[in-house]
Design a protein around this nucleic acid. Structure first.
Length: 700
DNA sequence: GAGCACTGC
C-alpha cells in the first residue's frame, strides 16, 4: 500500500512519520499561513487555497481517477469535508446528471458542510449543492450535483435504488467514528462496488485505521476480463495523508496513578489557573453526576480561595442541558475571565469549543455495551482508547499551541490503553440493523462482510427477536407483508410491529402518537430545585394505565393549546421534543397511508391501546414479585430482576403485570415507559411465545 | 425516589 501522487505534480509537503504505536503523526506545519486570517479581505477562493488539503488537490483527483477506493486520513481542520467535493465537481464527476454524495454521521454536520460548500461554489443551497436529512430534503433533482446526507439517509436510499445508480462517487466522512450506520454503509458500499466497478469511494477518517480499512476495501475482482480491466480502476485502495491545521499540544501525564479522578481534575484546574497564562480549560469527565459534582467542588474552592480564583467561570456541558445553558458555553469569555467547561464526550466529536487552550482528560467515558445473552444494553464507565485520547488532546490546539493534562500515567497510555475503541456495531442490539440488511436483500446475515463483525450470539439474538415478532419466517426471510412493512418504518421493529397491529384494535391513530413519543429522548424538561411543581405538572397528565396513555394526554393538551411554547413551559414540557413528536408522527402517518392502513381511533377505549402495545412488546412482560416490599419485578422471559423507573407514572403504583418499552441498566435494571396489562392478554397476543415457545428457535 | 455518553432513519 503505497502513497501516490500524480507524476510531475508537486509532492505532499508535510512530513509524515510512523509513530511507535502504528499511528501516523504529522509534524507541525509552518504557522505563516494562519496569521492572516483576521483581515477579512481575502476572497473565498484565496481562503480555499490556504487550507492544508489544497496542496493535495491534484493528488486526490489522480487517485480517485485511478483507484476504486481512496482513503484520506486527515485531522480536523484540513478542509477535506468541504473541499474534496468541490474538487470532484470541478473535475467533472457530477457531469451527465450524476451525483457526488458525501455522508456525515450527524445532521448538524450535514447542514453546516452543505451551506459552506454552497457559499464557496457561489450557489443557492438546495440547487447545485444540496442536502438531505430526515424531515428535510434540500435538493433539486436534475440540478443538484453535490449532495450532503447522513449515512442513515443513504442506507434508506438504497432501499429504492440498491446500486445507488445516481451516484458517481460517494465520500464517507468521519469513518473513524465507526457508528453502526457508518459501518453498515461501508459494508454495503463494498458490496455495491462488486456490481458497479465504476463507483468511486472516498473514505475519510481522522485516525489511522487506514490500514485495516484498506484491507477491507481491497476487492479481488473475479472474472475480470483482460480487455476491460484496463479501463477499470485499480481495486487496491490508495491511502493519502493530509495534515491538519491544528497547533502542537504538549502532553503532560501524572507521575502516579490517581485514585480519584474527580478530585484530580479539580486540582488540575486550580493549578492551571495558578501557573498558566490565560486560555480556557476543557475537562473531560464521564456523565452528568460526575460533572455536577465537579462543578460544585470547584465553585466551593473558588469561594474558599477567593481573590483571583473568582476569575474562573465554571460551566457544565452535556446533552441534557437546555438551550440557554448551552449558549453560555459559546459566548466568548469576557476579559480577565477564564472559562472552565466540564463536559462529557459531547465535546469530543459533536461540538467544538473555540478558545480552549488546556484540556484535562480523565481517561474515562460512558460507553454503551450489550449483552446478547440477557439482551440488555447498558451504559458503563470505561477507559477510553488512544484514538479518543488523541482526539481530546487535539481540542487544546485549535487557536494556538496548547497543553493537555492526562490524569493517567504515560506508562498506562503506552502499554495498557487500547489503540482504538470497540466499534458500536459490536456493542449493540442488532435488530434494526439486521432488518435493514434483510430489506436490502442480504439473506446471509451471518456471512455479511462487515468492517468489524458483531458476535454470532448478538446476530442470533436479533434473528430470534425478529422471528418471534413474525417479521422473519423459519427461513429467516422477511414475511409478507409484515416483515417488508416493518423494514420500511424507521423505528425499532418492536414499535413498528405495534403500529402495524394497531389497526386490528381500531386504534392506529393513538398508536402513531405513542410511537412518536417513544422515539424522542424525553418530553419532560428536568429542572432541579422546582421538584414539587414539576411533579404536580406531571400528575396533571398521568394516566392510571401507564406512560403510553400519559403520552396521549400530553399530545391532546399540546394540540388544544395550539402547540403553544408558553403552554409547554408552564407544564415542564420540552417544546423542541414535542415538535419532533409531531414531525415523526406525520412521517409515520404518511408511511402507513402508503401501506393502505386506515387511521382509526378507539376514542376512550384504552384496553384497545394496551393490547396494541402488547402486540409489539409482548416479550417485555414482567410480573410483580408477590412478597416484594421494594417493587421488584421479574421478566417472564429470563426471570431477570427489574424495577419500574422513578420517572414512570407507574412508579410506586406497582401493578401486578406490566410491559416495558426499554430497560436502562445502572445499579439496577430499570423499566422505562411502562404500561399495566392483564396476564391473559399475553397468551392472546403471542401464543407462540408464551405457550409453544421453544427456548431457541432454530434459524440458519 | 433515580438518572440518560452520543448519534440516526
Amino acid at each position: 500500500m503505497s502513497r501516490f501522487w500524480r507524476p510531475g505534480s508537486e509532492k505532499p509537503t508535510a512530513a509524515i512519520v510512523e509513530d511507535e504505536e502504528g499511528g501516523v503523526i504529522f509534524l507541525p506545519t509552518s504557522t505563516s499561513s494562519s496569521s492572516s486570517s483576521g483581515f477579512g479581505y481575502a476572497s473565498l477562493e484565496r481562503q480555499r487555497q490556504r487550507l492544508p488539503v489544497y496542496k493535495y488537490r491534484r493528488a486526490i483527483l489522480y487517485l480517485v481517477e485511478r483507484h476504486a477506493t481512496t482513503i484520506v486520513v486527515g485531522e480536523t481542520g484540513s478542509g477535506k469535508s468541504t473541499q474534496i467535493p468541490q474538487y470532484l465537481k470541478e473535475a467533472g464527476w457530477a457531469e451527465g446528471g450524476r451525483l457526488i454524495g458525501c455522508t456525515q454521521p450527524r445532521r448538524l454536520a450535514v447542514q453546516t458542510v452543505a451551506s459552506r460548500v454552497a457559499e464557496e461554489v457561489g450557489v443557492k443551497l438546495g440547487e447545485e449543492v444540496g442536502y438531505t436529512i430526515r424531515f428535510e430534503d434540500q435538493t433539486n433533482p436534475g440540478t443538484t450535483m453535490i449532495k450532503l446526507l447522513t449515512d442513515g439517509v443513504l442506507i434508506r436510499e438504497m432501499m429504492e435504488d440498491p446500486l445507488l445508480s445516481k451516484y458517481s462517487l460517494i465520500m464517507v466522512d468521519e469513518a473513524h467514528e465507526r457508528s453502526i450506520s457508518t459501518d453498515m454503509l461501508l459494508g454495503l458500499l463494498k458490496k455495491i462496488q462488486r456490481r458497479r466497478p465504476d463507483l468511486r469511494l472516498i473514505i475519510s477518517s481522522a485516525t489511522i485505521e487506514a490500514r485495516s480499512m484498506s484491507t477491507f476495501f481491497n476487492i479481488r475482482r473475479k472474472n475480470s476480463l483482460l480487455e476491460s480491466a484496463d479501463r477499470l480502476p485499480n481495486p487496491e485502495p490508495a491511502i493519502l495523508s493530509v495534515e491538519g491545521k491544528g497547533y502542537t499540544v504538549e502532553i503532560h501525564y501524572v507521575e502516579e496513578p490517581v485514585s480519584d479522578y474527580l478530585q484530580a481534575a479539580v486540582n488540575t484546574v486550580l493549578l492551571i489557573h495558578e501557573k498558566e497564562p490565560p486560555g480556557d480549560i476543557l475537562v473531560f469527565l464521564t456523565g452528568q453526576d460526575d460533572i455536577d459534582a465537579a462543578v460544585k467542588m470547584l465553585n466551593e474552592e473558588i469561594q474558599y480561595r477567593g481573590r483571583h480564583y473568582l476569575d474562573l467561570l465554571i460551566l457544565p456541558l452535556y446533552s441534557g442541558l437546555t438551550r440557554g445553558d448551552q449558549d453560555l458555553i459559546f459566548t466568548p469569555t469576557s476579559k480577565g475571565k477564564r472559562k472552565v467547561v466540564i463536559s462529557t464526550n459531547i465535546a469530543e466529536t459533536s461540538l467544538t469549543l473555540e478558545g480552549v487552550v488546556y484540556v484535562i482528560d480523565s481517561g474515562f467515558s460512558k460507553q454503551k455495551c450489550y449483552n446478547p445473552i440477557s439482551d440488555i444494553e447498558s451504559l458503563v464507565v470505561a477507559p477510553i482508547s488512544k484514538a479518543s485520547a488523541r482526539q481530546r488532546a487535539g481540542r487544546a490546539g485549535r487557536v494556538r499551541p496548547g497543553k493537555c493534562f492526562r490524569l493517567y500515567t504515560e506508562e498506562y497510555y503506552l502499554k495498557e490503553m487500547q489503540p482504538e475503541g470497540i466499534p458500536e456495531m459490536q456493542r449493540s442490539n442488532l435488530v434494526s440493523c439486521i432488518i435493514q440488511l434483510k430489506a436490502l436483500g442480504i439473506d446471509n446475515i451471518l456471512g455479511f462482510d462487515w468492517p468489524a463483525s458483531p458476535s454470532p450470539e448478538a446476530m442470533i439474538r436479533a434473528l430470534e427477536v425478529l422471528y418471534s415478532l413474525g417479521i422473519l419466517d423459519e427461513d429467516a426471510k422477511l414475511t409478507v407483508p409484515l416483515g417488508f412493512q416493518v423494514a420500511e418504518i424507521p423505528l425499532d421493529p418492536m414499535i413498528s410491529k405495534m403500529i402495524l397491529s394497531a389497526n386490528n384494535f381500531g386504534c392506529s391513530d393513538e398508536i402513531l402518537t405513542i410511537a412518536a413519543f417513544l422515539s424522542v429522548q424525553s418530553v419532560w424538561v428536568s429542572m432541579r430545585g422546582v421538584k414539587k411543581e414539576f411533579d404536580e405538572a406531571k400528575l396533571r397528565f398521568a394516566a392510571a394505565e401507564g406512560d403510553h396513555v400519559t403520552f396521549l394526554n400530553i399530545y391532546k393538551g399540546y394540540h388544544q393549546s395550539g402547540k403553544s411554547s408558553q403552554w409547554c413551559y408552564k407544564n415542564f414540557l420540552n417544546h423542541q421534543a414535542l415538535k419532533k413528536v409531531i414531525d415523526i408522527r406525520e412521517q409515520l402517518a404518511r408511511i402507513i397511508k402508503r401501506f393502505g392502513i386506515p387511521l382509526t381511533s378507539c376514542d376512550r377505549d384504552m384496553e384497545a391501546v394496551r393490547k396494541a402495545v402488547i402486540a409489539g412488546a409482548f416479550a417485555n412482560a414482567c410480573h410483580l414479585e408477590e412478597y416484594s416490599q421494594n417493587g421488584m419485578y421479574k421478566t417472564i422471559r429470563t426471570s431477570q430482576e427489574v424495577y419500574i423507573h422513578p420517572s414512570s407514572v407507574l412508579f410506586r403504583v406497582n401493578p401486578k403485570w406490566v410491559i416495558y418499552q426499554s430497560l436502562v441498566s445502572t445499579d439496577k435494571h430499570y423499566m422505562r415507559n411502562v404500561i399495566a396489562i392483564e396476564s391473559s392478554w399475553l397468551t392472546e397476543a403471542a401464543p407462540h411465545f408464551y405457550q409453544f415457545r421453544t427456548p431457541n428457535p432454530t434459524l440458519h
